[in-house]
């Protein structure tokens, strides 16, 4: 039984021995394809199979009858016989229905059993998958999933303290700023008197700036619409799995270009556009901009 760990074999043998009321060592030897231990030899007398006698390895051995007598499945008996033959350097006995592996087994007889095992492999036709063992494995053996340890810290107090301080700082800054700087309030809304220049809120001034260069359909509709859609589909376009900046040079460059461009346009539209939305230097003609 090449490739089966000893403890699995033993467990299997113990279970069978318990079920059949036999000796564990005897069953184990049977499973391994060895002769049963010496003291048990007389007890095994009635059944010819496990006896180390030469006739047992003879060509006329009736595995079906043996199987019926011992309860050991035929394939196991057969494999045991082959293994024993290999160890003893004898040709593997031919059996009815089993393809002859004898010629292959004789040559490497001097080699260790492990080396001999592949030699017997050609007995299995190509493309046929053989199953070696069906066994019950305890759940603990296959469910040992260890999560890799991560460097973590408690949210309380580490993160919450930082957040609290951040809130306090921003609130304080905002209050101080609000004490000193009043929100603008111009004259009452007058439909008949359009101020010159009329400017959109600052976050739309980049778009208003684009209106100077493009058709309103392009600057007012197509660019913002496609801009937002373009932003939204970034994760589905950027298939690069890495998050390291050195691996994402193109993505960072493209994104930074658009951020920079919109910042420039917004600043330009806010501070460098005077009456008639014409170019003007804020330090010459004054600032035409309200928050």
């Amino acid at each position: 039984m090449a490739g089966l760990p000893e403890h699995l074999l033993r467990r299997s043998a113990e279970a069978r021995a318990k079920a059949e009321g036999r000796d564990v060592e005897e069953v184990l030897a049977e499973l391994k394809g060895e002769a049963p231990p010496a003291p048990k030899e007389p007890a095994a007398g009635p059944e010819p199979a496990p006896a180390p006698a030469a006739p047992a390895a003879g060509p006329g051995r009736d595995l079906d009858a043996e199987s019926a007598a011992t309860g050991v499945p035929v394939p196991l008996l057969q494999r045991a016989m082959e293994g024993r033959a290999r160890r003893e350097g004898k040709p593997v006995p031919a059996m009815a229905g089993a393809p002859a592996s004898a010629p292959a087994a004789t040559a490497p007889a001097a080699a260790p059993a492990a080396a001999a095992a592949p030699a017997a492999a050609p007995a299995i036709p190509d493309g046929v998958t053989t199953q070696r063992l069906l066994t019950v494995v305890k759940a603990g053996a296959i469910q040992q999933v260890k999560s890799s340890p991560q460097d973590k810290v408690s949210v309380w107090p580490h993160l919450l303290a930082i957040e609290f301080v951040a809130l306090m700082v921003v609130t304080a800054g905002l209050i101080i700023f609000s004490v000193f700087v009043d929100a603008p309030l111009l004259e009452f809304a007058n439909f008949n008197e359009q101020p010159n220049p009329s400017k959109a809120p600052w976050y739309f001034l980049g778009l208003q700036e684009l209106l100077s260069y493009f058709d309103p359909q392009v600057a007012g509709v197509i660019i913002p619409t496609f801009g937002m859609i373009g932003l939204a589909i970034i994760p589905y376009v950027d298939k690069n799995p890495s998050v390291r900046p050195s691996d994402r040079k193109l993505a960072i460059m493209v994104f930074s270009f658009f951020v920079f461009a919109s910042a420039v346009l917004t600043i330009y539209g806010s501070f460098f556009r005077g009456p008639g939305f014409n170019f003007s230097f804020p330090w010459v003609d004054g600032i035409f901009f309200d928050f």
Partner: peptide, 10 residues
Amino acid sequence: DQLALWAVTV
């Protein structure tokens, strides 16, 4: 006010 009206108009 004038700021609100015309910014929103634009």
